[in-house]
Simulated scan of single mutants.
Amino acid sequence: MTPALETERLILRPMTMSDWPLYEALMASGRSQYMGGPMSRSAAWGMFCHDVAQWPLMGHGALMMEARGSGEVLGQVGINHGPLFPEHELGWFVYEHAEGKGYAYEAARAFRDWAQQERQLPSLVSYMDADNNRSARLAERLGATLDADAPRPEPGDIVYRHF
């Protein structure tokens, strides 16, 4: 079962079809450059379905960030694993209108804690493009440290290790 988590400002909830238009637009834009984009509609749909399918298959996946009170969708936080990810990966993105407000930090911290407490995962990593400075700063703010020896999905990625 996909959980819903709450923080001071956010509800982290399961994805729905109503999330697809904003997701598709992000993945087709230059803002997805550090996530393998810009992507075709077909590739974005595959990622969207992947984010949902991991829940029944693996007991984790992605949750959408929604503002408490207004219901505005702000972005996504996820735990990925399986054939495309050597280890359990904590990832995030925010939509342009939500950037710079601390939502990714709040969501990632809550989901990281859930993974450790509820799933009892021994570790999480965050894979990122070496040029993705904003995500690197966020990983460091979350307490993660660079792990040069960690396996990575792409040779040029850097890996931050959480707990």
Score class of each variant (00 low, 15 high):
Gln76Glu: 05
Gln76Asp: 04
Gln76Asn: 06
Val77Asp: 03
Val77Gln: 04
Val77Gly: 02
Gly78Leu: 05
Gly78Arg: 06
Ile79Leu: 12
Asn80Pro: 01
Asn80Ser: 03
Asn80Arg: 03
His81Glu: 08
His81Asp: 05
His81Leu: 08
His81Phe: 08
His81Tyr: 11
Gly82Cys: 12
Gly82Asp: 14
Gly82His: 15
Gly82Ile: 10
Pro83Val: 15
Pro83Thr: 14
Pro83Tyr: 15
Pro83Ser: 15
Pro83Asp: 13
Leu84Ala: 12
Leu84Tyr: 14
Leu84Ser: 11
Leu84Pro: 07
Leu84Phe: 15
Leu84Asp: 09
Leu84His: 15
Phe85Pro: 12
Phe85Ile: 11
Pro86Glu: 13
Pro86His: 15
Pro86Trp: 09
Pro86Ser: 14
Glu87Pro: 09
Glu87Gly: 10
Glu87Met: 10
Glu87Cys: 10
Glu87Ser: 11
Glu87Tyr: 13
His88Thr: 11
His88Val: 08
His88Tyr: 14
His88Met: 12
His88Asp: 13
His88Pro: 08
His88Arg: 15
His88Gly: 11
Glu89Met: 06
Leu90Thr: 04
Leu90Arg: 02
Leu90Ser: 04
Leu90Glu: 04
Gly91Cys: 03
Gly91Tyr: 01
Gly91Ser: 03
Gly91Ile: 00
Gly91Asp: 00
Gly91Asn: 02
Trp92Ala: 00
Trp92Gln: 02
Trp92Ile: 02
Trp92Leu: 03
Trp92Asp: 02
Trp92Glu: 01
Phe93Val: 10
Phe93Asn: 07
Val94His: 00
Val94Thr: 01
Val94Gly: 00
Tyr95Glu: 06
Tyr95Gly: 01
Tyr95Ser: 04
Glu96Arg: 06
Glu96Thr: 04
Glu96Trp: 07
His97Asp: 06
His97Lys: 10
His97Gly: 06
His97Ala: 08
Ala98Trp: 04
Ala98Lys: 08
Ala98Asn: 08
Ala98Cys: 11
Glu99Lys: 02
Gly100Gln: 04
Gly102Ile: 00
Gly102Lys: 01
Gly102Phe: 00
Gly102Val: 01
Tyr103Ala: 01
Tyr103Glu: 02
Tyr103Gln: 03
Tyr103Gly: 01
Ala104Gly: 03
Ala104Ser: 05
Tyr105Asn: 02
Glu106Gly: 09
Glu106Ile: 09
Ala107Gln: 09
Ala107Leu: 07
Ala107Tyr: 03
Ala107Lys: 05
Ala107His: 06
Ala107Asn: 07
Ala108Gln: 04
Ala108Ile: 04
Ala108Asn: 06
Ala108Cys: 07
Arg109Ala: 08
Ala110Arg: 15
Ala110Gly: 13
Phe111Thr: 01
Phe111Ser: 02
Arg112Gln: 13
Asp113Arg: 14
Asp113Met: 12
Asp113Ile: 07
Ala115Gln: 13
Ala115Asn: 13
Ala115His: 12
Ala115Trp: 09
Ala115Thr: 11
Ala115Arg: 14
Ala115Pro: 07
Gln116Leu: 09
Gln116Gly: 09
Gln116Trp: 07
Gln116Met: 10
Gln116Thr: 09
Gln117Ala: 15
Arg119Ser: 15
Arg119Gln: 13
Arg119Phe: 11
Arg119Ile: 11
Gln120Phe: 07
Gln120Val: 08
Leu121Lys: 07
Leu121Ile: 12
Leu121Ser: 06
Leu121His: 06
Pro122Arg: 12
Pro122Phe: 09
Pro122Tyr: 10
Pro122Glu: 13
